[in-house]
Design a protein around this nucleic acid. Structure first.
Length: 636
RNA sequence: GCCACCAUGGCUCAGUCGGUAGAGCAGCGCAUUCGUAAUGCGCGGGUCAAGGGUUCGAGUCCCUUUGGUGGCUCCA
């Protein structure tokens, strides 16, 4: 007999060799029905796995992470089986579950069209109906290679398995795949699925390798869940910043201007101004100095900085002026360094904190451009800190705290922090510098009571960094903030300061961007609020709607008073019905609408409609002004 | 850059088998003076992304280019 400890802490005895599904049935038929896998001592296993020793067992349903992974992984096998039936010449690569569903990579002469996906879906439906049991078995390396002799990618995978690895396969009907599992017990367990899209993907994610065809899909135990998921995607589309940007007339791109270059329309620019105003105010309050630098610089500058060596493929081609090459800047750092180099510095003057909303241009591959989130010309909210080594831990903490408070101001309180460490292959700076800097970064995160994931080897070649990715309302992550050490440029530009003992010392240099780039941040912010900016950010904060012509003068008076208090206000005095104008203001997502008619004119009040709560009654003009001014001040 | 898909008035979209382009919204004009999500009538507006090809004839079929979308690689 073996002792099995269940999730609720209870311990049950079973005969040795009892399978997980049998235990599930023993607990309840209902549980057995919804169980998709079992977690044995923390490892996700097939339900058919026999248990031979005492263990902890957690039965997983689709709702758990491991359950989803199992469910989706099995669906990907069903898809591969369908593809093999329809297109026997296709070679199989890999087909894992991912965050939202699964994919399978195929090597195929023929490219899959949307119609093919429909046909594959129909075949999958058959396989599910046929309800093949899914069996696991293991083979020796030789047998495995023999079985997979027509599958070159599988052979490559088998050959790379460690010497002592167990080589397992899963069989369902005529289809067998090399796979570590786990899987559901039979193909009939998949209830609702959909193939989402075809995409190219390099074998093993390396662009030097062959491009395979990837098909993405997702599945659920209930049809209603699939419907919900699709509805969720439609909702996401409604708050897509590109769509909102057009609808709210905030920004656009223009084919004639060029790809990845943003033009900011008056309303978008107004929101941007608000962001920048706050940014400037906060930087001055936090001990930064603001600087301005040019957009281009001589080739020699970029030679010295190392950009022409390490970064040239991301830079716009040079322009020749007076027989010299000038490059448009992809980064601001060399210019800030030039400020530093302009004179001799004492340790007493450190640290320097120089910030700039610096517009940079980078050549990004055409296929990666994406709305405002990936562009070729953008403005970084950049700053460079120059400090003595002993000041460094303090500076890091300070900048991290500043960063988080800035994100908070914009309504972002959920984010994920990554600590990116020394890359394996190439890096500059000695071990001690890396260790000190990495430790300082990690300690700063801890000191703020935060957690971070380690991005092993993810640092820049010139230093470790903290990246902060913010999540929008739909849980998608976007990297905005970054705090990066630089061991490279102080060396290359031979930066020094005079220490207390009169010796020349090398300062530490930190690059940092809190919002990242204004463009990307604006895009994320727009999606975060679904276009409904809080009053302090909204391009039009108040819309005054006089009911009739005779109310216009009073409306103007109110608007003027609001403008005196720096409130952005528009008057909609068009000869349209009130419902029409309310509707438009509502669609423009204006936070407050003021309806002015006879009643208001007589009593000196305004009738207030809030975007969110509808008609909220009337109040005196002054009461409304102080209300809205206060909301703007406190970022309510 | 690579794989797939897409491009029709300002916007959203229809356009069958290849036979010379249509709607709604927006815009403009007129009427309407109205109390919280669309007042009515009328008018104007398109070299069907660009270029080439097939054809008696191309929005529709083929090729190239440009731009975009979803991925891959890369990144703020």
């Amino acid at each position: 007999m073996i002792q099995v400890t269940l999730k609720d802490g209870s311990v049950k005895s079973y005969k040795k060799g009892t399978t997980i599904i049998e235990i599930a049935r023993d607990i309840s038929e209902g549980l057995a029905r919804v169980a998709v896998a079992g977690e044995v001592n923390g490892q996700v296993k097939d339900l058919s796995t026999p248990l031979n020793e005492d263990c902890k067992l957690n039965l997983l349903t689709f709702d758990s992470e491991g359950g989803k992974a199992t469910y989706w992984h099995t669906t990907s096998h069903i898809m591969a089986q369908a593809v093999k039936r329809l297109f026997p010449n296709v070679k199989l690569a890999i087909g894992p579950s991912i965050e939202n569903g699964f994919y399978y990579d195929f090597d195929s002469e023929k490219t899959f069209t949307p119609e093919d996906l429909k046909v594959i879906e129909a075949e999958m439906q058959k396989i599910i109906k046929e309800d093949y049991p899914i069996e696991r078995f293991t083979l020796s390396r030789e047998e495995a290679l023999e079985l997979m002799k027509d599958e070159p990618y599988k052979i490559e995978l088998i050959n790379e398995l460690p010497e002592d690895a167990e080589i397992s396969f899963y069989r369902q009907g005529e289809f067998t795949d090399l796979c570590a599992g786990p899987h559901l017990m039979s193909t009939g367990k998949i209830k609702a699925f959909k193939l989402m899209q075809q995409a190219g993907a390099y074998w093993r994610g390396n662009e030097k390798n062959k491009m395979l065809q990837r098909i993405y899909g997702i599945s659920f135990p209930k049809a209603s869940q699939l419907e919900e998921y699709i509805k969720m995607l439609e909702e996401a589309e409604k708050r897509d910043h590109r769509r909102l940007g057009k609808e709210l007339d905030l920004f656009s791109m223009n084919e004639q201007i060029g790809p990845g270059l943003v033009i900011w329309h008056p309303k978008g620019a107004r929101v941007r101004l608000r962001i920048e105003d706050l940014w400037r105010k906060q930087h001055l309050r936090n001990g930064y100095d603001i600087v301005y630098t040019p957009h281009i610089g001589r080739g020699e500058l970029w030679e010295t900085s190392g950009h022409l060596g390490f970064y040239k493929e991301s830079m716009y081609s040079p322009m020749e002026v007076d027989n010299q090459d000038f490059y448009v800047k992809p980064m601001n750092c060399p210019f800030h360094i030039a400020i530093y180099k302009n004179k001799l510095h004492s340790y007493r003057d450190l640290p320097y904190r120089w910030a700039e909303l610096g517009t940079v241009y980078r050549y990004e591959k055409s296929g990666v451009l994406h709305g405002l989130l990936r562009v070729r010309g953008f403005t970084q909210d950049d700053a460079h800190l120059f400090c003595a080594p002993e000041q460094m831990p303090d500076e890091i903490r300070r900048v991290l705290r500043f960063c988080l408070s800035m994100l908070h101001e914009f309504g972002f309180d959920k984010y994920k922090i990554y600590l990116a460490t020394k890359p394996k292959d190439k890096s500059v700076g000695d071990e001690k510098m890396w260790a000190d800097a990495t430790k300082a970064l990690e300690e700063a995160v801890k000191a703020e009571g935060l957690e971070c994931d380690i991005d092993e080897g993810g640092g820049a070649f010139y230093g470790p960094k903290i990246d902060i990715k913010i999540k929008d309302a739909l849980n998608r992550e976007w990297q905005c903030s970054t705090i990066q050490f630089d061991f490279n440029e102080p060396e290359r530009f031979d930066l020094t300061y005079v220490a207390a003992d009169g010796s020349r010392q090398r300062p530490y240099m930190i690059h940092r961007a809190l919002l990242g780039s204004i463009e990307r941040f604006f895009g994320v912010l727009l999606e975060h609020y679904g276009g409904a900016f809080p009053v302090w950010l909204a391009p039009v904060q108040v819309k005054v709607i006089p009911l009739l012509e005779k109310h216009q003068a009073f409306a103007n008076e109110i608007a003027d008073k609001l403008r005196q208090q720096d409130v952005d206000v528009e008057i909609d005095a068009r000869n349209e019905k009130i419902g029409y104008r309310i509707r438009e203001a509502q669609l423009e997502k204006v936070p407050y609408m003021l309806v002015i008619g006879d009643k208001e004119l007589e009593s000196g009040t305004v009738s207030v409609r809030s975007r969110k709560d509808g008609d909220i009654g009337s109040m005196t003009v002054d009461a409304f002004i102080s209300k809205v001014v206060e909301e703007i001040r406190t970022h309510a």
